[in-house]
Amino acid sequence: MRQLRSELPALLLLGALALAPFVGFGEGYVLTLLARAMILAMAAVALSLLVGGAGLVSMGHAAMMGFGAYAVVILDDARIVEAHVVLPVAILAAAGFALVTGAVAVRTSGVHFIMITLAFGQMAFFTATSLAGYGGDDGYTLYARNTVAGGRLLENKLAFHYVCLGALTASWLLCRMLLASRFGRVLRAVKGNPMRAQALGFDPYPYRLTAYVIAGAIGGAAGFLFANAAEFVAPAYISWQRSGELLFMVILGGLSGLHGALLGALGFVLLEEWLSHQWEHWRILFGVLLILAVLFLPNGLSGIPGQVAKGFRRG
């Protein structure tokens, strides 16, 4: 019963996204917005695995998405557009980058880990800007979205909505399964007290590196979907600002569970979109609201029901 209660918020969110096209949110523009939110939620869930599960606060997670997106670009330029080829390449490219950089970064922790991942992310960003053959600073426009078995399934907005929802659900289930397994228990033990975990015979390094690579692979899949959603890829997708946004989504939603990353990503994207239509200088107000959320919602958006219940009990 307790396990079902902890999973209920994520199940409700995923169920709401499944029903959204049939309850007034089926317009093309809205579906595009929800697809973007779900793709970023995928990356946020992967980052939540690192932050909440392993205590690794990465400021280079957008680079994982960038590697997946640029894999789509490079293959598109070579006229290789079949999803069953492009998607595995995108995942492997991001996982490979995570393995190489993580082999160094995971040996550190705390602020040192943050700065190393930031440095690797910026290296990826400047590498992307130097790729003149793929647009450089100006970015690259895809010829078309990737095909599925020769068909144009991903060009249908409703179908793409459910592809993104399926990918998000699979990512959440994978991360949830990992955290509930022996692997996840060791990760949390290492996060809580690395020295005690070592004394019990668990070397933190391979566990943390594995989690980092898995998060990178999920980020690569998100990058594949993001490239197809926008049909355009630019170095800005890899910038430290995007990594900061992903990290803020995780914090905004709450670190109490993976459902926080889902809620944080959806809330971040929808609030950003709504404010942009209300005021020319909306970023000022957006920043103020995010600061207030951090100050007055210590457990994130997912902690609001608990805070309300606590307030009623006091009253």
Results as ranks from 00 to 15, higher is better:
Q3Y: 10
S6H: 15
P9Y: 10
P9S: 09
P9W: 10
A10M: 07
L13K: 01
P21S: 13
F25V: 11
G28K: 10
T32H: 15
A35N: 14
R36E: 12
M38E: 10
A44G: 06
L49K: 04
L50D: 13
V51N: 08
G53E: 12
G53Q: 12
A54I: 06
G60S: 05
M64P: 02
M65D: 03
M65V: 11
G66M: 09
F67I: 05
G68L: 07
A69V: 05
Y70V: 01
A71R: 00
V72A: 09
V72Y: 08
V73Y: 11
L75S: 06
A78D: 10
V81F: 07
H84F: 15
V86N: 00
V89P: 09
A93Y: 03
A95Q: 04
F97G: 15
A98N: 06
G102L: 06
A103R: 12
R107P: 03
R107N: 06
R107Y: 05
G110T: 12
I116Y: 07
I116F: 00
T117L: 08
A119L: 10
A119V: 08
F120V: 06
F120G: 07
G121Q: 03
G121L: 03
Q122V: 09
T129N: 13
S130C: 01
L131F: 14
A132C: 00
G133M: 05
G133I: 03
G133H: 12
G136C: 13
D138K: 15
G139C: 08
N146R: 01
V148F: 11
V148L: 15
A149G: 00
G151C: 02
N156K: 02
A159L: 15
H161W: 04
C164E: 12
L168Y: 12
T169N: 06
W172P: 01
R176K: 15
L179D: 07
A180G: 14
F183N: 07
V186Q: 07
L187Y: 12
R188E: 15
K191C: 11
A199F: 07
F202N: 13
D203A: 14
Y205L: 13
L209N: 02
L209E: 11
V213D: 04
G223Y: 08
G223F: 00
G223D: 04
F224I: 03
L225N: 11
L225A: 06
N228H: 14
I238D: 06
S239K: 02
S243R: 02
G244P: 01
E245W: 02
E245G: 06
E245P: 09
L246S: 05
L247K: 01
L247P: 02
M249K: 01
V250R: 09
V250N: 00
L258I: 03
L258Y: 10
G260M: 09
G260Q: 05
A261H: 07
L262H: 04
G264D: 01
E272N: 13
E273Y: 06
L275E: 02
L275N: 03
E280M: 10
H281R: 14
L285Y: 15
L290P: 01
L290D: 04
L290M: 15
L295R: 05
F296N: 05
L297A: 14
L297T: 10
G300H: 00
P305N: 02
P305R: 05
G306A: 13
K310D: 13
K310Y: 03
R313K: 14
